[in-house]
C-alpha cells in the first residue's frame, strides 16, 4: 500500500500561494483557517527560499498521541484524519503539532475554539465518501475520487509534490541528480568549512 507524502521542493517554490488559495477554494475553508501556508525564509535576502507547509501526515503523529478523546485515525495510506464529531476543541493537537497544522475557527476565549480543522490530504473524514456531510465538515474527498491533493496537482512549478512516497521521492531524486553534485551536494559547506560554500 502506498504511503502518502507531501514534499515541497524549495528550489522550485516561488511563493505564489496558489496552493493556499486552491486549498481554500476546493474545500470552501472558512475565513481565518489556513490548512496550508507558504513560509518564506530569508525574505528579500540572498538565499531566499519558500516552502509550502500543511499537515505532514506524520507516521508518529503527536496530535494522535496527545488527543484526550482519541479523535484521530490514520488511513492505510498513512493519511492522518480526525472526527469533528468527537473533537472537543481543547487545542492539545495545536500545542503538540510541530508544523502548526491544526486550525480553529474561533480565537479561543473560554476554551471555545470550535472543532479543529486541518489538511486532510484531500481525503475527507469518517463520513461516507463524497457525501454532503463529509464535504461540509472536511471538504472534498479527492482521494476517494482517485485524485491527488489539489495543492500539488495545480502547483505551477511542480514544487509541491503529493502522493505515494516512493514515487514522490523518485521524482525528487531525479531532480537532485539533474541539478548536479560536487560543491552543490548536500552538506558540502559543512564538510569543508571555509572552502567552497554550499
Amino acid at each position: 500500500m502506498a504511503r502518502m507524502k507531501f514534499l515541497c521542493d524549495a528550489e522550485r517554490c516561488i511563493e505564489c500561494n496558489a496552493c493556499v488559495t486552491a486549498c481554500k477554494n476546493e474545500h470552501e475553508v472558512p475565513w481565518g483557517i489556513n490548512r496550508r501556508r507558504v513560509v518564506t525564509l530569508s525574505d528579500g535576502k540572498p538565499g531566499e527560499r519558500s516552502i509550502s507547509v500543511a499537515c505532514m501526515h506524520c507516521s508518529d503523529a503527536p496530535c494522535m498521541a496527545v488527543c484526550p478523546v482519541d479523535c484521530f485515525y490514520q488511513t492505510s495510506d498513512g493519511i492522518v484524519l480526525h472526527s469533528k464529531d468527537l473533537c472537543i476543541g481543547c487545542g492539545y493537537c495545536f500545542f503538540a503539532c510541530p508544523f502548526g497544522a491544526p486550525q480553529y475557527p474561533q480565537s479561543g476565549n473560554f476554551g471555545s475554539r470550535g472543532k479543529m480543522d486541518k489538511c486532510t490530504f484531500c481525503a475527507g473524514g469518517p463520513e461516507e465518501d463524497n457525501s454532503a456531510e463529509e464535504f461540509q465538515k472536511y471538504g472534498r474527498n479527492r482521494i476517494a475520487e482517485g485524485k491527488l491533493p489539489i495543492c500539488a496537482e495545480m502547483c505551477a512549478t511542480k514544487a509541491l509534490l503529493a502522493g505515494d512516497g516512493d514515487i514522490v521521492s523518485n521524482i525528487y531524486r531525479e531532480r537532485v541528480v539533474g541539478r548536479g553534485f560536487g560543491s552543490g551536494a548536500w552538506g558540502w559547506g559543512r564538510a569543508y568549512p571555509g572552502g567552497a560554500s554550499n
Partner: peptide, 25 residues
C-alpha cells in the same frame, strides 16, 4: 572547479548558478 562564495552567502545559504542550496545548517 569548486566555486568559492563569500562568508555572508554561506550563512544565508545562497545558491550557486546551478540553483542548488545545500546549506545543511
Amino acid at each position: 572547479s569548486a566555486v568559492n562564495q563569500s562568508v555572508e552567502e554561506e550563512t544565508t545559504g545562497a545558491s550557486n548558478t546551478l540553483g542548488n542550496n545545500s546549506q545543511s545548517d
